[in-house]
Nucleic acid binder design. Structure first.
Lengths: 100, 100
DNA sequence: TGCTTTATTCGTTATTTAGCGAAATAAATG
DNA sequence: CATTTATTTCGCTAAATAACGAATAAAGCA
């Protein structure tokens, strides 16, 4: 995996809505409608969520698992990103001095 | 560290030039002039590199270490991002099927 | 002091991204 | 088959980002 591809993964994670989706999927696969509800970041429209999913899929972070009934299920394709997100989350103290 | 702040960290890493800089800084502090040379991604102008450093600094990823002579030294402020980048790098197989 | 090096700030332009309403697709259900 | 539900695609606009040349600042050197 080259530099550009790696950067694309981080870029995909670099939006609150997408990061929330990834963290949700880290707790197990779910359908789009659940992701549409679940974001505590803010309420986004279905088209917007759909587009964010495409970004994550293109970067290889998630994958379309299967279609059950009317619902389409996604799951995390790079399990390590869950650990990554946790790692960053815990670095709280490292950011205090920047005013973040 | 909240969702938005975490996303900002990933966003900062989400550019080939910035990721290369972070990976370089992961091997030890260095000055701007070294970062200006070192990117195998592509040759960028000094103003552009300077702006990328600002992005990384604002997200709390790096910090301005000190000024020695004419040179300004930066270092990694969130050491875990080095490990993160390696983790993503190794997930190569996970991306084959997406055409990445 | 004047010149060179190192790095940043400013101003501008081109490109990308985010978001959404409207429309389209697909599956289940009455 | 018409309707509802779940999701995506399309077309558009507003905002953010990337990049760079010119100008600026600060430090060391001749």
């Amino acid at each position: 995996m080259n530099l550009k591809q790696r950067a694309a993964v981080f870029k995909a994670l670099g939006h609150p809505a997408r990061l929330a989706m990834v963290e949700r999927l880290g707790r197990g696969e779910c359908c789009v409608c659940e992701l549409l509800e679940g974001t505590d970041y803010r309420k986004l429209s279905a088209p917007t969520v759909s587009q964010h999913l495409l970004v994550l899929k293109s970067a290889g972070v998630i994958t379309e698992e299967e279609k059950r009934g009317k619902k389409i299920y996604y799951r995390l394709r790079m399990p390590c990103v869950s650990a990554i997100s946790l790692c960053v989350k815990e670095r709280e103290e490292a950011l205090g001095a920047v005013g973040l």
